Simulated scan of single mutants.
Amino acid sequence: MTRRVPCPPAPGPLEAYAARFDGLFSDLAQRRGFREYLAGLLLPRDRNTTLTCLAGTEPVVGAQHAAVQRLQFFLFESRWDPEKINAHRVELLLNDSATASHRGGVLVVDDSGDRKDGSATARGGKQYLGSVGKVDRGVVTVTTCWADKRLYHPLRALPYTPAHHFPTGTAAPGFRSKLQIAGQLARRATAAGARFRAVAADAAYGDHHSFLHDLGEALLPFVVAVKPSHGSWAYGNIRTPLASPPWL
């Protein structure tokens, strides 16, 4: 068996963490790219969503820098499995006594949207974007995050693909609504070993019976917000959650 070539270490204590993922990468370039990517995300830089900033170079003019090109190759061309990387990250979190989940925490389901101009971006479309608080052109990702009073950490994220990307729209076999993705992520969190008291979500999810039914079938308790106009059933009367008579 060929001995692995040593990889330039990540800064400080980050190396000990990065080394735990080495078995999931096939060559030196991938292991080096992973370390540079982690460092770029964690260092105090202004725009760690761009390759030039992740690599610590000047915007635009630094795009041809060797460090930027390495990150470009690592993130978009190199063959490694992001599902395995994330699964191992979650496994490390859940097995560490400092970050392990427990029954006092909650599983927060939400989505995040980012504006993207033009129509060339994969999974892009005109939809509601929470980051700007309105309908605009962009991409949306559904996420799960475990949290308690002391800490929080993301578990998983899946991108949402708008219906217009499919030939038959919502009837396409591959289409998944944000509600369906959220239910899938909640079940996968349980399968991964995450423990929590309840699933928590805002009214974008709490107002939809299909999502709550999905959680119920998975035997997952939930606490969700609903809009004031959302009616709720009770013995003796029908009322909206924020418009109850004072004697109730």
Results as ranks from 00 to 15, higher is better:
Glu77Lys: 04
Val60Cys: 12
Ala163Thr: 01
Thr57Ser: 15
Arg150Ile: 00
Lys227Trp: 11
Ala189Glu: 02
Thr49Ala: 09
Trp80Val: 00
Gly169Ser: 07
Lys116Ala: 10
Arg31Val: 01
Glu15Cys: 07
Ala16Trp: 13
Ala29Val: 08
Phe211Val: 05
Leu107Val: 03
Phe74Ser: 01
Ser112Phe: 05
Tyr152Asp: 14
Leu215Tyr: 04
Ala234Phe: 11
Gly12His: 07
Pro228Leu: 06
Arg4Ser: 13
Lys84Asn: 09
Asp148Ser: 01
Ala63Leu: 09
Gly56Cys: 06
Leu43Phe: 08
Ala192Gly: 05
Leu93Thr: 01
Asp27Met: 02
Gly183Pro: 14
Phe21Gly: 08
Arg31Tyr: 14
Ala157Asp: 11
Gln180Thr: 15
Asn86Cys: 06
Trp247Gln: 15
Trp80Tyr: 05
Tyr17Arg: 13
Tyr37Phe: 14
Val109Pro: 15
Gln127His: 03
Ile181Lys: 09
Gly133Pro: 09
Phe74Ala: 00
Arg32Asn: 13
Ala55Phe: 06
Ala225Met: 12
Leu155Asn: 11
Arg35Trp: 14
Glu77Gly: 02
Phe196Asn: 02
Asp110Val: 01
Arg123Gln: 05
Arg103Ser: 11
Gly104Pro: 07
Arg176Phe: 13
Phe222Asn: 00
Val224Asn: 10
Gly12Ala: 14
Gln127Asn: 01
Pro59Ala: 04
Pro245Thr: 05
Leu24Cys: 04
His102Glu: 10
Ala63Cys: 09
Arg156Tyr: 12
Thr190Leu: 06
Ala201Leu: 05
Ala194Gly: 01
Ala67Thr: 10
Leu24Ser: 05
Gly125Trp: 00
Pro167Asn: 00
Thr2Arg: 13
Ser177Pro: 03
Glu15Pro: 12
His208Arg: 14
Leu92Gly: 02
Ser232Pro: 08
Ser232Ile: 12
Phe74Met: 02
Pro8Gly: 15
Pro221Asn: 08
Val142Gln: 07
Glu77Ile: 01
Val108Ala: 12
Leu220Gln: 11
Pro9Gln: 14
Leu185Ala: 04
Thr50Val: 04
Gly118Val: 06
Pro59His: 07
Thr50Leu: 04
Asn95Thr: 15
Ala67Glu: 13
Glu36Lys: 14
Ser26Ala: 06
Val61Cys: 11
Pro6His: 13
Arg20His: 13
Ala19Ser: 13
Leu215Phe: 10
Leu51His: 00
Asp214Ile: 03
Thr52Asp: 07
Arg123Cys: 02
Ala192Lys: 02
Pro9Glu: 15
Arg115Asp: 10
Leu51Asn: 06
Arg187Gly: 10
Pro9Tyr: 14
Thr141Glu: 15
Gly133Ile: 02
Tyr128Asp: 04
Trp247Pro: 07
Asp202His: 09
Leu212Trp: 09
Pro167Thr: 02
His88Ala: 07
His165Trp: 03
Arg103Ala: 12
Gly40Leu: 04
Gly33Asn: 13
Thr52Ile: 04
Tyr160Thr: 03
Pro245Ala: 08
Tyr17Asp: 13
Asn86Pro: 01
Glu91Pro: 02
Ala203Lys: 03
